[in-house]
Design a protein around this nucleic acid. Structure first.
Lengths: 413, 413
DNA sequence: AAGAGTATGTTGTTGCAAACAACAAAATAA
DNA sequence: TTATTTTGTTGTTTGCAACAACATACTCTT
């Protein structure tokens, strides 16, 4: 099956769709909180104790959650049971990069169980990445404990993804154009494959498990070696756009400068806030984010400081626009923007407020992301998990020991 | 009661909330379509014929909808009944401007029954506007047919509105700051009052009844004498932001120009695309949109053409950003932007595509709004109607013949 | 240490809303 | 006129959550 996190028409609701909805709701709460008491489930959902009990029993039957006696005493009265996701429910994360492909295993409880980075030739084709991913997945699958259930594969793509059919529309750094990645990887693995833009998935991860937990209006900005990407959550929902290409915040024009970004657009945020510029200045070549961060933390010269403030100015212009457009509760920065921010947090916030409307900016908070290296891994895994959670009783989980891919396994759209 | 289109937590669903949901769904469909066949309701909602029958009976009981035999034959088989909103359910729209306040009556079926524009002194205070509105409303109420039910009052505010408590945070043209408008007008009228930003309401109206009907991802840009406002619909839902201030698209910085907009921000869309500039050029002073449009349609001189193309260039820069950020299906223009667009539609579209990512722009369509003078009237009325529709059986409709405002009527938050 | 108090889990019953089936009604097509 | 098609109506069934009563397991008090 190929990804389509389809917005089911939520119109008429029959009585049994209520059951499905409540089942989803409970499973989602368990997944988001990693562990949660039964009593909390009843109070949060507003459902009756007996109803919650029945729902959990069904989820346990499906092998999706487990119950255990809670350790710490929580107060007077009979102690409530702790509900946790079943550790045997997992998803794969695939992250293709310019010189490597990383495959990871994530449990429904958010643990990264395994991670393998396969170095590849300098310009891998989609087919190369698919082959390598499928090999790693197949190998990891063999080592799973018996009874392990696989929700599917989530792929974080450094480029634009058409969500309707899981096609990579354009990934500039990789040089990939119109690749039916999801269908192909699904064929190779027999698993459900879901694609998402890397920054959008990072946004999702920070909104669910990171620094923006429980935030309903959120702007996320991520800068790596390949430019600046972004993601937005509004009303608690990811802003995806008509085809899934929304969130290209780095390509927002903020200046009349003629400098081009990696997509050839002039005067954009991405063209002005550049990791490369800093590396050049510090004469660092091929540095990790950590090395760059250390360099920034030890800045002394006023020339370096001026460079940093120039970068912060440009970043602030972009963020001001986003504040006016989205009136977010929180702005989350990731990648090398975290170092930039930490260089002078007050300055950035002040500049953002100066460039935006007082009302929209008055409560905004800027924070660094909290998930570090797990950002994209967790984000990508959320795609298959979302599909599972939205229909727990009917979702087609795969077993660990692969029924080898026979003809026409992985059903396409 | 004061507005708070509160996002009720949609978690646990009990059996009677299903009834409410389905009641809402049916009423919403009737409202959005103005008239709809029972058979269509069953097929769209997926509910059973008998269920739809019962729901409509309840809505009829509540005086919200009416049934009639459909006129034209629609094919073989027993003809289906036509369901329409009850014409006796109305809402008031209030639109304060710099020199006048307009009060209108709109039926649940979307008909504007009455509209009165009261001229006011040059700089009316919020209290002035509230007094005038309350007087007009009281007067109009007296003339309603017996049995008329009032859903409430919707106010379109040319400024920033805090949705949580219906306070006008800042309305630059009017010079209003922190005015508890909703509470005060509710006190005066005894009706439920809801506030919204004018451009956001325009967006809502175009998305529901105008040129963007059934569009789930939409960017709306509205330019009047007081600058440029905007609205966005993403995933079928209005983007409101944490406090309701989202959608200030006119204050997006797109250039390094030092020109200031009406809020004092430099290089923004609003500072570059200006009705005033055109009026100055054509030596028109205090012209209506129609007069300006006529002038633009008769342009001959290359100097005028250059001016128009400059304005289009700036508009395109803003729209390109919005395309990259939202990947909308449709962009809707209103106010004097319609004249600008019609001057050279192909040019604008080409420039927008040039400034944005190919993927995000490939299917985008630019259109003029279709609602004209009814835009804000219909948009504002949607606020009370939304409240009614989201809980048809428990909503507190007011009767036409006002029980005069006794002490502590209009319950505040 | 024992009992009171409290919060939670469990079981059996009830109530309610939508689905379903069978039938009636109102149109078209032949 | 008769067969066919589609829709509305009525009475019955099914399924899910609410509810009430009871059982359980902890804390707090004395």
């Amino acid at each position: 099956m190929v990804a389509n996190a389809g917005a089911m028409s939520n119109l008429g609701q029959s009585s049994d769709s209520v059951r499905q909805h409540n089942l989803s709701t409970v499973l989602r709460l368990v997944h988001l909180n990693r562990k949660i008491l039964r009593s909390q489930l009843t109070s949060i959902t507003g459902l009756n104790r007996s109803t919650v009990s029945a729902l959990i029993a069904e989820l346990e039957e499906l092998g999706l959650v487990e119950e255990s006696e809670s350790e710490g005493s929580s107060g007077v009265g009979r102690p409530s049971l702790m509900v946790t996701p079943n550790e045997k429910v997992v998803a794969f994360s695939v992250n293709p990069e310019i010189d490597a492909t990383t495959v990871s295993v994530v449990t429904l409880s958010g643990q990264v169980m395994d991670r393998r980075r396969k170095l590849m030739g300098s310009h891998p084709s989609p087919e190369d990445a698919i082959r390598v991913s499928a090999e790693e997945i197949s190998d990891m699958r063999k080592k799973f404990r018996p009874g392990t259930q696989i929700a599917g594969v989530g792929v974080s793509v450094p480029g634009q993804v058409r969500t309707s059919d899981g096609v990579i529309r354009y990934a500039p750094q990789l040089g990939w154009v119109e690749s039916a990645f999801a269908t192909a990887l699904s064929q190779e693995t027999g698993l459900n494959v879901f694609l998402g833009n890397d920054a959008s998935l990072g946004c999702l991860a920070e909104a669910r498990f990171g620094t923006a937990k429980n935030v309903n209006d959120l702007v996320f900005l991520f800068a790596g070696s390949g430019g600046i990407g972004g993601g937005v959550v509004s009303n608690g929902r990811t802003v995806g756009g008509a085809a899934g290409y929304a969130g290209e915040l780095g390509h927002m024009k903020v200046s009349s400068s003629g400098r081009l970004d990696y997509s050839g657009l002039p005067g954009t945020l991405e063209s002005l806030v550049r990791r490369e510029d800093l590396l050049d200045f510090f004469k660092l070549y091929v540095a990790t984010d950590e090395e760059l961060d250390a360099e920034i933390k030890s800045i002394e010269s006023s020339r370096a400081k001026r460079l940093m403030h120039d970068q912060l100015d440009s970043l602030a212009e972009g963020l001001s626009n986003l504040v006016n457009i989205f009136n977010p509760e929180v702005i989350v920065l990731a990648g090398f923007l975290t170092s930039l921010f930490e260089f002078d947090p007050d300055y950035l916030l002040a500049r953002v407020k100066k460039g935006s409307l007082a009302a929209a900016a008055e409560r905004v908070v800027i924070r660094n992301g909290a998930l570090g290296a797990d950002l994209l891994v967790l984000g990508a895994a959320e795609l298959p998990f979302d599909a599972l959670i939205s229909s727990p009783s009917s979702y087609n989980l795969q077993s660990a020991y692969a029924t080898r891919v026979e003809s026409g396994e992985g059903d396409s759209l």
